[in-house]
Design a protein around this nucleic acid. Structure first.
Lengths: 200, 200
DNA sequence: GTCTATAGTTCGATAGAC
DNA sequence: GTCTATCGAACTATAGAC
């Protein structure tokens, strides 16, 4: 059987469809993404969406990969600065990135092909974090057996993502105390927050 | 205009529909919940679902409330034991409860009526946690200004939920080190894990 | 590269019979 | 309390014209 026609990776329309998909996921959730809703928002027809992405899963996967690669680049750059732990905290506190990751995780929970892709990327981010931060933390005498860099990183990310998610729901109980604790911890390790925040 | 007919709160069928809704959310995600899918799984017709719950939002809300109230009872009991912090850790590490909460949060992100209900319950859980744990932690000299109970609780929950979620995706990077760290921390504060785990 | 047209599903919600 | 029947809408995906 012959191959179905398909759009190329470099197409501007394809990029637009991915933009729209991301926007729609953030604003209305993954369940609001359909070939029709994406097409309408992009000003094209649903058939064209299927021309670039055979199935909806392909569309989700492409959107996830593109954003993950973008974030990996940004992530790498931040971790090479002089306050990598603080940078990691701020990176994983980003509300819209957290919300988007959350949508993809919710989606992944019930779609095999997407789950394995997301798991792979999370592991990849984590390896980069551990590689970048281990020497830095050990220089502060924090690589000790009872406080390994892996545990510091996972905890920091767990707390930041939880705060971000709860905040987007409007929950604030215990947040000020937790933020203050993290801030003291980061200051002790890497000094105070710079007067001019690092650029995004 | 006259009131629409509606089922009563005490109906066994109503309870069954809530059971099915919960099961379906866990297994296939909230997007797989429809009046038809719930009806089919419960062995009734879609019209009957609408007889008990006027809209799908009503169904979701009822399912959330019922489960939240159940968990509040369990939560209360656990926090009154002799290792409340460890109990809180285990409580919020429960994979299926975490997965279900996650589904509801994903749903809530884009449905106003559900969002406010979830936010309210999270705040309620947190107040109970703070009230129960503050005296306990202060007895261990941990209520100090620089390490308030609120921050300990939020951090512990953030880490446990993140580990649970990642685990369900198949991510394990940094988990062993983090689990070991938490275990050492809990042991230092409340002693070792009991030989026979507390019952659920 | 983009469209129209269409097949085949599934959905939310209601009216009204039993 | 539960069902059948139904409206009107939205959905995925494809074939084929332009």
């Amino acid at each position: 059987m012959a191959e179905k026609r398909m759009g190329t990776e470099s197409s501007a329309t394809r990029a637009l469809l991915l933009d729209v998909t991301e926007r729609l996921m953030l604003k209305k959730g993954y369940a609001a993404v359909s070939s029709r809703s994406v097409a309408k928002e992009a000003g094209v027809t649903a058939a064209l969406v299927h021309y670039y992405f055979r199935t909806l899963d392909d569309l989700f996967l492409a959107a996830f990969r593109r954003e993950a690669e973008r974030q990996l680049v940004k992530h790498d750059r931040l971790l090479r600065g002089d306050q990598p732990l603080r940078a990691l905290w701020e990176f994983s506190s980003n509300p819209s990135i957290t919300a988007l990751l959350f949508e993809f995780m919710a989606l992944a929970n019930h779609r095999k092909s997407i789950r394995s892709e997301i798991a792979e990327y999370i592991e990849r981010f984590r390896r980069v974090q551990i590689d970048a931060l281990s020497p830095h933390l050990e220089a502060h005498g924090l690589g000790r057996v009872d406080l390994p860099p892996e545990a510091i990183i996972v905890s920091l990310i767990g707390v930041s993502r939880t705060l971000a998610m709860e905040q987007s729901l409007g929950v604030t109980g215990g947040h000020p105390e937790t933020l203050a604790l993290v801030e003291r911890y980061l200051t002790r390790l890497e000094g105070p927050r710079p007067a001019v925040p690092r650029s995004t």
